[in-house]
């Protein structure tokens, strides 16, 4: 464990809490992509199957359980409890355009051709692009609520901090996982445009709106 990984995990946890808070406090999931949230639930489910087969640490197990539970909790709030507020007209990104190629790629490029490893690889690839429906939704509506933009900033920062963690681990532990690093870089790059808007607008007290 190093400071980058820990702050990355905290940012990830913070993002999830912010999203749940937004939905709970406003009693609405307007502006949140149900498709991105469905893919995140799929990401956690396929990645953390090793909870059953492998114990790493209490921290690791606890965080994994929190991430799985919160992702299904978010789906419950979006698709059952506050279903009426779900903005499906703007959530039109086609999930199969991501899930199918990612599934194919995880069969082709992985560390080991075994079921658990392929599922882990699938989750890493899918996570890297799972935010696209959310970003697409913001580009369609042209704006995001401030709390939603805080959520996205925390969520994007998490993988950016993981990149620093991988640099650290490469130099100090000799650890290098090409699949995670490449996917993590792709994931972070997808947020760059959003980061720019967030810093130039939300940090100055304005709402996140897209330039016309």
């Amino acid at each position: 464990m190093n400071v980058f990984r820990l702050t990355g995990d905290i940012a990830h946890l913070l993002a999830i809490i912010l999203l749940l808070m937004k939905i709970w406090k406003t009693r609405s999931c307007a502006g949140v992509s149900g498709k991105s949230q469905m893919m995140f639930a799929l990401v956690f489910t396929t990645r953390y199957l090793d909870l059953i087969t492998n114990f790493i640490s209490l921290y690791n197990t606890t965080m994994k359980m929190i991430f799985i539970a919160s992702s299904y909790g978010t789906l419950y709030l979006m698709f059952l409890k506050f279903r009426a507020t779900y903005d499906s007209n703007h959530d039109t990104f086609r999930m199969e355009f991501l899930v199918v190629p990612v599934a194919g790629l995880s069969f082709l490029v992985n560390h080991d051709f075994s079921p658990l490893e392929i599922l882990w690889t699938f989750s890493i690839y899918l996570e890297s692009v799972a935010i696209l429906p959310q970003l697409f939704m913001i580009s369609k509506t042209g704006e995001a609520e401030t709390i939603t933009s805080h959520y996205l900033f925390a969520l994007g920062s998490y993988r950016a901090l993981y990149i620093l963690n991988w640099v650290y681990r490469f130099y100090f532990e000799g650890f290098f996982d090409l699949i995670a690093v490449v996917a993590g870089c792709v994931q972070t790059v997808l947020y760059c445009d959003f980061f720019y808007l967030y810093i130039t607008k939300v940090w100055k007290g304005k709402k996140l709106t897209l330039p016309a």
Binding site: R5, D9, R47, F67, H111, D112, A180
Partner: peptide, 10 residues
């Protein structure tokens, strides 16, 4: 499998 590395990250 000797090179196998467990996934210890989240």
């Amino acid at each position: 499998m000797e090179e196998e590395q467990e996934h210890d990250e989240l």
